[in-house]
């Protein structure tokens, strides 16, 4: 078996205590949630830590609730708890459906949404969808709490803007208003997705006109991207928007900084974006 190097586990009772521990251990310590990313990187000796601070021992961080127009998902909620949450299924079913397709059942049972975002692995489903949903995250460290958008949280591949003592305490997603049409699609042949594409539109006249649109791609690029120019092509009368889809996909691909990797070349990913934007649009208007 591939053994892990030795480390200690610490069990903070509050966020403040966790932040103190992280500050105290510095480079030799790291926050630990489900461990589904962290322990793999440590097994492969890509990361080495002598101290893991178990965020799950802080009470009150696992909750999921809808309140004041926002869906609030606590900082240690697992993919599975989100997938089966009645509140999420009722108020934001798209998010529950996306969660049900993250990784496999074992990773979903232990891996957390916050851990997914804070590892900033480029092949993230939730990061792409959250970007299009204009979600925000609450973080807290020794210098107090702050709120960040997804763009602010994830500025690059495997990078976040969190200070080393900061803890993500909640992900907050605006609840959809009447007339919102949204879809998230992924294309996946390996363990992680090759492409994720999220489309969120506010529509009027029973879906005949699109007032605002947000579109994001992920996995094909170092971190999830939106394109304002592509979004402007997705606003207007529906038939016109439908005619614009190919052009919007081109613009989105131009702005996404597509990468060549084992999942395929940049040209292939450009093609996928075009196919999946059209599919996402069709999915957002089922049975039209």
């Amino acid at each position: 078996m591939m053994p892990l190097r030795r480390f200690r586990i610490h069990q903070p009772g509050t966020i403040a205590e966790a932040a103190e521990m992280l500050a105290h251990f510095g480079e030799s310590g790291r926050l630990y949630a489900g461990g589904t990313e962290l322990l793999l990187a440590m097994k492969h000796d890509v990361l080495r830590f002598e101290h893991l601070v178990d965020v799950k021992t802080v009470p009150g961080l696992a909750g999921i609730e809808a309140n004041g127009g926002w869906l609030r998902i606590g900082g240690v909620a697992t993919h599975r708890s989100i997938e089966i949450s009645p509140v999420v299924r009722q108020r934001l079913p798209l998010f529950a459906e996306m969660e049900a397709k993250v990784a496999n059942g074992r990773v979903r049972a232990t891996g957390t949404l916050a851990g997914n975002l804070c590892f900033a692995e480029p092949h993230s489903d939730p990061a792409t969808l959250l970007l299009a949903l204009e979600a925000r995250v609450r973080v807290e460290g020794r210098s107090g709490p702050r709120t960040l958008t997804i763009q602010e949280l994830i500025p690059g591949a495997y990078q976040t803007s969190l200070a080393s003592d900061e803890i993500l305490t909640a992900v907050e997603i605006p609840l959809p208003k009447n007339g919102q049409r949204a879809s998230y699609l992924k294309f996946q042949v390996h363990e992680r997705p090759t492409l994720g594409l999220a489309l969120v539109m506010e529509t009027q006249d029973r879906g005949q006109a699109i007032a605002t649109a947000r579109v994001a791609v992920g996995c094909v690029c170092p971190f999830p991207r939106r394109s304002r120019q592509a979004e402007s092509l997705l606003v207007g009368d529906r038939p016109q928007v439908e005619r614009n889809l190919s052009q919007a996909a081109e613009v989105l691909a131009d702005e996404a900084d597509l990468i060549d990797d084992l999942e395929g070349g940049a040209d292939y990913k450009r093609h996928l974006i075009s196919v999946f934007l059209k599919r996402a649009f069709a999915c957002a208007f089922p049975g039209r």
Partner: peptide
């Protein structure tokens, strides 16, 4: 690496990868 499932055991009824 949590991919194959050979190590699956149930903890409080939920499947986990015992390897990790």
């Amino acid at each position: 690496v949590q991919v194959c499932g050979a190590c699956t055991v149930l903890v409080d009824g939920l499947p986990v990868s015992a390897c990790t």
